[in-house]
Design a binder for these strands. Sequence first.
DNA 1: TCAATGTCGAATGTCAACATTAGGACATGA
DNA 2: TCATGTCCTAATGTTGACATTCGACATTGA
Lengths: 226, 226
Amino acid sequence: MTVAPLPKASRRGLAQEAADLIREAIFTGHFPPGAQLREVELAASLGVSRGSVREGLALLEREGLVHSVWHRGTTVVDVTAQDVEEVYTLRAALDRLAATSAQRNATADQLTELDTLVRAMAQEISGDASGATLLALDIAFHDRIYDAANNRRLVEAWRAVRSQIYLFQLRRIALGHEHYRARVVDEHRELVTLLRADDRETLARRAEEHVDSARCSLLAGLSPSM
Amino acid sequence: MTVAPLPKASRRGLAQEAADLIREAIFTGHFPPGAQLREVELAASLGVSRGSVREGLALLEREGLVHSVWHRGTTVVDVTAQDVEEVYTLRAALDRLAATSAQRNATADQLTELDTLVRAMAQEISGDASGATLLALDIAFHDRIYDAANNRRLVEAWRAVRSQIYLFQLRRIALGHEHYRARVVDEHRELVTLLRADDRETLARRAEEHVDSARCSLLAGLSPSM
DNA sequence: TCAATGTCGAATGTCAACATTAGGACATGA
DNA sequence: TCATGTCCTAATGTTGACATTCGACATTGA
């Protein structure tokens, strides 16, 4: 028998590796919105070939983090009010479907995991945590819901907005996140409760409203800087 | 002033060209579901480098038409009942959002174009048209709605399922499309009417039901062959 | 006979050199 | 001064050769 169920036995190739590194650099602000991502520069700094960087950038474009046009290179997406509007409107539709699908398909274990995450959030709130870890828990929570929905295409669509959500929210908690902290735990706890109930219509509506609340909160904190 | 708004002034590069050719080959059945797409083979037959083919295949993977795993190549997606279920469930959610967004944002011209498309459908029905042109009109109709929704991310998400929808439906009309012909025109005409009205809830529900109807019709015609 | 292992072929992953393109600097003309 | 056309440069697009990996078959040993 094998010694242990390794976290990830699958090899990923240099393109994914490069994509991970570049994504991280974007999140940390090393590449601000609108910045150009030059292939030669990245290839040199990451120690891989231009081909791999190129493929990695294509992956990031799939996630909506960068945008590239022919013979004009790729740039980090910029965060305008319209962009926020677009991403969150789409996410509301996706979350609605994910929630209702998860309501039918989720196993007891998966629901328990959601409980655990909500508890972790509550603990973070009482502690002195930076908003970043709280945000990570928030995203992880929704990741689990999408997993439970049991629809690979839906997960793919979620991946196409997930990174942008993360980027937007990161930018926001840098400006203060009191309003965010105050609501997160309660809203997520309510979602778990509704997932366990069998009122599909209410769940669908609340899932959309949950995203709307996040959007409004984001726009309120972001608009002065735009 | 410029002489005319050219249909496509943008150069696209070999990768897109290759992707178009391969996509067409998949639609015509030259590569049946499950078939392996070997890079060297394609590169030779298309007269371009392997790198371009590789990039083109990545584009097709974004559209959900092919699937590729590390060091094991890329294959055409196969059409199981679960796949149909996944794609159409996601599409229902997207169409719902597209319809309600279009209801708010569509210009009069865009609505008129929808009318034109519906009339073209009706004309095809009375003629001896193959189902293929009818299907093309169907897809074009929904393309316009997504355009009218005025949300680039939503259009991207639509592109990720559009080709699969087309593939599924093509496979279906090969087996006979009486049921399809009987309903298409009326259903689309109703959608345009609802887009012009201001009852958002009814439009949202009917948009979902329109997709559901297509899904059921597809599963009914397809299941014996699976 | 069967299972574990070594070897082989064919495909993909990676790389560095070459070709092409967009955008700006400069000079020229009305 | 403005418009236009021509270079030039820095980046991307493209290519063919090289390295790596997977699956299958043959081989070996119990």
